[in-house]
Each structure stands twice: as C-alpha cells, then as structure tokens.
Write a protein that binds this DNA or RNA. Structure first.
Length: 264
DNA sequence: ATGGCTGGTAGAACCAGA
C-alpha cells in the first residue's frame, strides 16, 4: 500500500522570532514533515512545546547558540537520527532521519560562504566548497533511497537568479560554486525536484534580500533552497511547489518554504 | 542601489546572513 507524505523545507531565520508564522504556515499547508534551517537557537531553548501542540511530536534537533541550526519536525515517527559535520568545525548544519518507508531524509544548511569568491582571500568560501566536497564523498556511499533538502546557498541555473550576468561574481552564483554543486549532483545521481516540476527557464526563486524596498517590484530573487532525491525516488514525487506568499507576511523569513509530495 | 535590512547577543559605531 502506498502512502502520501508531504515534506517542506524552510530556512526560517530564527525559529523563535518567527514562531507565529511557522504556526500560520503549518495551519495552512499542514505538511507531514517540516525541515527548518537557521533555527538560531540552542537545543535546550528550542520551542518544542509549540510543535508538540501542533501535532509534530517527532523532533530531531541540531542547534547551537546564535547561528545556524537545523531541525526536522514530523507528524510521522522516524529512527536513526544522525548529525553529520560536513563543515568539519562543529557547526550545527545537518540532521538526518530514517522514515518508516526506509527513506533517508537529510536536512542541511550549507554555508553562505562570505562575500569574496576566493578561498585565499576568504576562508569561508573555501569552507563552503569543502562542505560540498564532503557531501560529494558521502553521496557515493548511500545505501538507502535518500532525500536531501535545505538551504544549499547556491542558485545553479541562469534562470535561478534575477540577473545571471550581474550575479556571476556574487557568491551563490559563481561558476566555481555551480560546478562544485554539479559534481555533488552527479556523484549521487541526484534529481533536482524543483526543476523537475517547474522547468528551466521558468522563474523560480526561494530567497529575496530584506534590503529591497519593494520585493516584487525589483524581484531580485535567487533559488537557494533545494530538494533532491536519489534515482529510486524520482517517480515517487507526485508534486512540488513553493510558498511565495510567505515572503510577504509580517516579519517574514528572507527564504520561503518549498514542499514536495511523495507517494511512498 | 546586492546591501538599502534583520536577528541574536551584548550592552558595540558587534557579528553574520547572501
């Protein structure tokens, strides 16, 4: 018997500051599983009681004070919680679980990489590339059908940014980042669900800067958030959508939720 | 005019995000 499951990924930019809009989103779309990034909270201060109240009884949390942090909140039980340190510096950027169907769900927050696209001048850029390289090695060892989702901090296609030419030197869309992410994609034979359903070159953004005065007037967006699956799962994804309306709520995250529906 | 804002933490003319 097959079972429908919806999974959302959302870089929330502080789960505590946005607990109200998290509730609004969950009430509106009610995904079975919510993968958050940039929770910005130590595990003992995570608002577990709220998710408990909303029916997300199963929580896998990997946070730290101030920065980063990921959490997977689920109505469905899971097992085998793992935390990978693909950054190799202890930062909380990954949490993975195994769903009842045996599918692995990996929730990741890939580093932004700083301002300068040069690892000599900017160590954070090197850390970002090295993070991808470690994920690439991991991709070669997968034993189960796997979903990897989260804030990848790279907009790979020209149609994933508001202006390809202008962003070629801007971290998130530089050729070296796109090439590095393509190597990861090939290593796991990953399928990009976003672009399976909303095909290139259609406009598809998941992030807009807070600094734009009028988000939609300038529409300077980028597609930084992704959901990828291994080959066994490609035909099990029945739909995918983004929730752009969330970017226009009061005190929004700068990222919007992305959601896929699976038929396991 | 892609940093113009935002959050966390400190108690900064900070730091980090992307």
């Amino acid at each position: 018997m097959s079972k429908k499951i919806t999974i959302t990924s959302w870089n929330i930019n502080s789960v505590r500051a946005r607990i109200g809009i998290v509730e609004d989103f969950l009430k509106q779309e009610a995904p079975d599983i919510l993968c958050l990034q940039e929770t910005k909270v130590a595990d003992d201060l995570f608002p577990r009681d709220k998710f408990e109240e909303w029916g997300y009884h199963h929580m896998a949390i990997n946070g730290q004070k101030m920065h980063h942090g990921v959490a997977t909140l689920s109505k469905i039980p899971f097992t085998d919680v793992e935390k990978f340190d693909w950054q190799a510096n202890g930062e909380a950027r990954h949490i993975g679980v195994t769903l009842p169907s045996g599918v692995r769900l990996e929730n990741v927050y890939i580093p932004a990489g700083g301002d300068v696209a040069d690892r000599e001048l900017n160590p954070k850029f090197g850390q970002k590339l090295d993070f991808f390289a470690r994920m690439t090695e991991w991709s070669k060892t997968l034993k189960s059908p796997t979903i990897v989702t989260g804030d990848f901090n790279v907009a790979p296609l020209p149609s994933d940014v508001w202006n390809h030419k202008q962003l070629l030197k801007v971290v998130s869309h530089t050729p070296i980042e796109v090439e590095t992410m393509d190597i990861l994609k090939a290593a796991g034979n990953w399928t990009d669900i976003g672009r399976k359903f909303i095909e290139d070159p259609e406009r598809l953004f998941t992030w807009w800067s807070y600094r734009a005065k009028d988000r939609l007037a300038s529409d300077r967006g980028r597609r930084l958030d992704h959901m990828w699956v291994t080959p066994e799962l490609v035909d099990k994804v029945v739909s995918h959508h983004i929730s752009e309306y969330c970017r226009d709520w009061e005190k929004p995250s700068d990222h919007i939720p992305i959601t896929s529906e699976f038929n396991f």
